[in-house]
Design a protein around this nucleic acid. Structure first.
Lengths: 337, 337
DNA sequence: CTGAAAGCGCTTACAG
DNA sequence: CTGAAAGCGCTTACAG
């Protein structure tokens, strides 16, 4: 098998020019159909494969997109961003692009060191996956290639971002509880920890307001410290009839705490949450939860970045992708009392 | 900010040739230290970034490695290969390489369609992550670039592979049970399903043989059908005092089955398993299990592929990476009876 | 120590 | 419909 078959090799073999070969293989005008077919056949036989580097150099695109993920979001039990990357990678293939993952270390983030992918012009744009230091983000925004933020947004609206509709998801989830007859509903999550939790809390709150239900501060439970480390959740003396938890893992922890305190789920207290990750299925009972539409988010982010690369510099702003409620057995109909 | 600063731009600005700029920036001989420093400074100021495509074309390397993962191994609850990819990607960066994930669809696998990364010469080699169809593998092996198999091996020894030491891990795990006084030890896993399970079974068996303990066929329990779908595990009338499960998830399922049958773990039956994934910690009690050394496996696979690309065509054969036993609370000392 | 020339493999703009 | 020329940005081998 010959190692490096080039267009010129094919051209020589067929006594045509390499220009004609290029046109034939790329389905461009300027070759007769007959010759085109012949060239394609010979190319196939000779095992011709295009040289991406040469093409890249010629037209100035690398056909690669960098996906920046802060390393702290890619730990052993956090597969969410890895799943997201997987979808991105898959969607990019459909555009003839490749996705290159870049794990951002805490150190590089602190020292504002941009990915080597940037310094080598190895990518045409970046999808930035996961909230990061503001100063670092500013640095990222200073690059002269397009970026799209994924699963978080910047305070300034000058850059596109694709996020889950946390607000609306929690709102729908709470509406569902209310339809099931619940009037006293708590929330579990540290409101000062992440933007997602805040939005979920506010969606929950809006639902309460809309139904003229009271938000009882004693039913707003903290689940983690400022650094994000989970803490023991303090169970109030008297329980509401339901809780909205900010994520499945916290729901899992909380249910185990409630069980130890002698409560039965969902008989004594209904629980709903967010993510539909593994914790939603291993909890007894299974959790009614909002599934994030990872695929749709990936598709949207990729579409935006490709558009920008193609030169369409329209600002898409902040786009929310709606999740779906997955119904399981953690909610019980509440009789009026 | 100027868009595309090239070496020539720097050269013109400084009244030297682009050859000199190239030498200076690449720390090659042939430039005075003084000039070198000046060039570097100017390059920095002008925001020069090397063009990977041009470099690639020149020296024939893409500085990319493809990582092929069969799509069925990258489902929502299977983050193992994604973790592995993440480590590969990280290790590659240290070699100035990038890892590009390619998800192999069942369809492409059936039709023996090679990754587009290959047809575009976009990668210098492939790490093949996860067992796949033999016919497809043959196709892969027919490519004219280096490959390394990761987490599985081929029946022929002509290609390098890096695997977990399943055999030795299960052997050590069983030895541990025996040291704890267990004499009747079962195994959970379909022996005809995957090579990993087989090897784990054989390691378990060797430990029994070495200690002159009987392998009771009634204590070898099936956990899945031929397609890999988990089935209800049939609990034997009389239990041995311990079981080696082929993975944490199965241990999780099995323990839940045993509990429902009224057994207490580890009092009535000790359990050990493999993987140290999320199931090892959510099981009550936590599982004593073998942790796969993902990082070391990634390092080894990357080292092999880079060596091969650099032209060292020494055959490394099949290399096993040892795991570590993580001790938790699923094993109880067994008093002699 | 410095630089002119050549070439990596492709594609576009232009001439015939 | 076909092809000669030029150029993308770099680096190596060679000449001075």
């Amino acid at each position: 098998m010959k190692k490096n078959v080039t267009m010129r090799d094919i051209a020589e073999k067929m006594n045509v020019s390499s220009v004609t070969v290029s046109k034939a293989l790329n389905d461009k005008d300027g070759v007769s159909d007959d010759l085109r077919e012949k060239i394609k056949t010979v190319a196939e036989t000779m095992g011709y494969r295009i040289n991406a580097a040469a093409k890249s150099m010629r037209d100035g695109y690398s056909y690669n997109i960098g996906v920046i993920i802060p390393e702290r979001f890619a730990g052993a039990n956090q597969s969410f961003y890895l799943q997201m990357y997987q979808h991105i990678s898959k969607v990019l293939e459909g555009y003839n692009y490749s996705g290159i993952m870049h794990l951002l270390t805490d150190e590089d983030e602190r020292n504002k060191r941009l990915p080597h992918l940037y310094y080598e012009k190895k990518v045409d744009g970046f999808i930035v996956l996961g909230q990061m230091d503001k100063e670092y983000l500013k640095e990222i925004k200073g690059m002269d290639i397009p970026i799209v933020l994924l699963d978080f947004y910047d305070e300034y609206d000058d850059v596109d971002s694709v996020i889950t509709d946390n607000f609306f998801g929690a709102y729908e989830l709470t509406n569902y509880l209310i339809r099931k007859g619940h009037q006293e509903i708590g929330f579990v999550g540290n409101l000062y920890s992440t933007s997602s939790i805040q939005d979920r809390f506010l969606g929950y709150y809006k639902s309460l307001l809309e139904h003229h239900l009271v938000m009882n501060p004693e039913y707003i439970l903290n689940d983690r410290d400022e650094k994000g480390t989970y803490i023991d959740i303090e169970v109030p003396k008297k329980l509401p009839t339901a809780f909205v938890c900010n994520c499945d893992q916290v729901a899992f922890n909380f249910i185990s705490t409630l069980k130890k305190a002698g409560y039965k789920i969902p008989e004594d207290c209904s629980i709903v949450s967010f993510d539909n990750d593994i914790y939603a299925t291993i909890t007894e009972p299974g959790l009614t939860t909002v599934e994030v539409n990872v695929e749709e988010m990936a598709k949207t982010a990729v579409r935006f970045i490709i558009e920008k690369i193609k030169g369409n510099d329209e600002n898409n702003g902040r786009v929310s992708v709606k999740g779906n409620i997955i119904y399981r057995d953690s909610v019980m109909e509440q009789k009026a009392r």
